[in-house]
Simulated assay, not measured.
Amino acid sequence: MMEIKVPIYNILNFLLTGLVFVGCGLLMYPDYAGNFILSEYYDKITAMSETLLLLCIVAIAYEIGFVLNRAGSVFIEPVFKKLKIIPFNDDYKLYNDMSKEYPIMKVLSREYALSRTSSLLFALLFISSLFSGKKIYMMIFALCTVMFVLSCRKHATKIVTLMEAQKG
Results as ranks from 00 to 15, higher is better:
106 K>V: 05
159 I>F: 03
145 T>R: 07
80 F>M: 14
17 T>F: 00
115 S>H: 07
13 N>I: 03
166 Q>A: 09
39 S>H: 14
152 C>N: 10
19 L>P: 01
89 N>M: 10
129 S>H: 08
134 K>H: 13
89 N>Q: 09
147 M>F: 15
147 M>V: 10
91 D>G: 06
93 K>W: 04
143 L>W: 09
30 P>D: 12
2 M>W: 06
56 C>I: 14
134 K>R: 10
47 A>Q: 12
107 V>D: 15
2 M>K: 11
142 A>Q: 07
104 I>H: 12
82 K>I: 07
92 Y>D: 00
132 S>V: 08
111 E>Q: 14
29 Y>N: 14
155 H>W: 05
132 S>A: 14
110 R>L: 07
79 V>E: 01
50 E>A: 14
163 M>S: 07
10 N>I: 04
64 I>T: 01
63 E>M: 06
83 L>M: 15
124 L>W: 03
161 T>N: 13
158 K>T: 12
128 S>K: 00
149 V>P: 08
99 S>R: 09
168 G>K: 02
2 M>V: 05
85 I>K: 04
62 Y>E: 07
157 T>V: 01
101 E>A: 06
94 L>Q: 06
71 A>E: 00
85 I>R: 04
71 A>L: 08
159 I>Y: 03
125 L>N: 05
37 I>V: 15
124 L>K: 01
92 Y>G: 03
164 E>I: 01
106 K>F: 07
138 M>G: 08
15 L>T: 08
165 A>S: 07
122 F>M: 00
88 F>T: 11
136 I>V: 10
36 F>T: 13
